[in-house]
Design a protein around this nucleic acid. Structure first.
Lengths: 169, 169
DNA sequence: GCACTTGTTGTGAGTGATTCATAATAAGGA
DNA sequence: TCCTTATTATGAATCACTCACAACAAGTGC
């Protein structure tokens, strides 16, 4: 039994949290719509729990995120999104046209972004101080986040008719 | 290649914008405090222009960003920050303790995060200008953004307190 | 130097996303 | 089943930012 496909109720319990219908509903919603934002999750959850409020969804999302059951990503210029895929250090490609988010496995295979210090040390000039393992500019790095910005396949074929998203170079 | 060594007034003019005292003040403020947010910039600018409003600072920042004179970064969980270092594809290390931001040159040297597909033979001459367009999950990638999260040197030596709120001045 | 055009700024209100405070409710152990 | 305490519901509040529009001033022509 793969650990990642634990029953939602079990994973909630395993995290030391109480199992509630709201939390199950939120996890269930994210099962079908990865990278959804709070509002989308709220709409989806309301189909089974019409009385749940958006604020309660926020509370649930916060609790599940704190417990490590969800990962929260915050693309620049768009509301926070949540995903169930946790535990690996995958990255994200975000469409500047429609805002779609796609998981991207670290294709290089050895988490290069997590340990940016190359085998040969940097010349310690200017901003680049000598870096040890997991150290960047004197920082003790714990996480590296890579976001690719571009056009999704669908938007590549559109005549640039989605101006709702700003492109900051 | 309009470098940052241009006089602020010249770079504003070169971008096709009118030179105003407000814009000069904002650029001047960012000269001394890289990675400042709008509020910090506003406070700094008010020392020379006491009547400028925060909204006007936002307008100026937006104009300068659109003109390519500033780069806007939006770390998760903190307001947008602005920096004058543009034109290169450097990354950022952000302290989870105090929110400090540090520039990080692409340590691997050949923009690995921009072209994660292993067989793609990217000419290393670009040095991370963001010009390479790789394909990730069908996306046509134009920009790759790398954010390292960790503890800055100062916060590494502090007892494990999480203020979570930073004051950058 | 002066008037004019038009880009910029100032101002207050408005918006979207998220959090806070607190009372009501329900999950899970005794 | 009861009881404790985690969890949810609710409305207000906050935070970062944008909008509309009138007032102003930078740059241009004379």
């Amino acid at each position: 039994m793969p650990t990642a496909t634990l029953e939602p109720a079990d994973s909630i319990r395993a995290a030391g949290l109480r199992v509630t219908t709201q939390r199950l509903a939120v996890l269930g919603a994210l099962e079908n719509m990865p990278h959804a934002d709070a509002d989308a999750i709220h709409r989806r959850v309301r189909s089974t729990q019409p009385d749940i409020s958006l604020q309660s969804v926020y509370v649930v999302l916060g609790a599940l995120t704190d417990a490590g059951l969800l990962r929260r990503i915050e693309p620049a210029g768009s509301p926070a999104r949540y995903e169930r895929r946790i535990g690996d250090n995958h990255h994200h490609a975000i469409c500047t046209g429609c805002g779609a988010v796609q998981d991207v496995d670290c294709a290089v295979g050895h988490a290069p972004c997590l340990t940016p210090a190359p085998p040969a040390p940097l010349p310690g000039t200017g901003t680049g101080t000598g870096a040890g393992t997991g150290d960047v500019a004197g920082f003790r790095i714990t996480t590296a986040e890579v976001t690719y910005w571009g056009l999704c396949p669908a938007c590549q074929h559109l005549p640039a008719s989605h101006p709702d998203k700003k492109e900051n170079a």
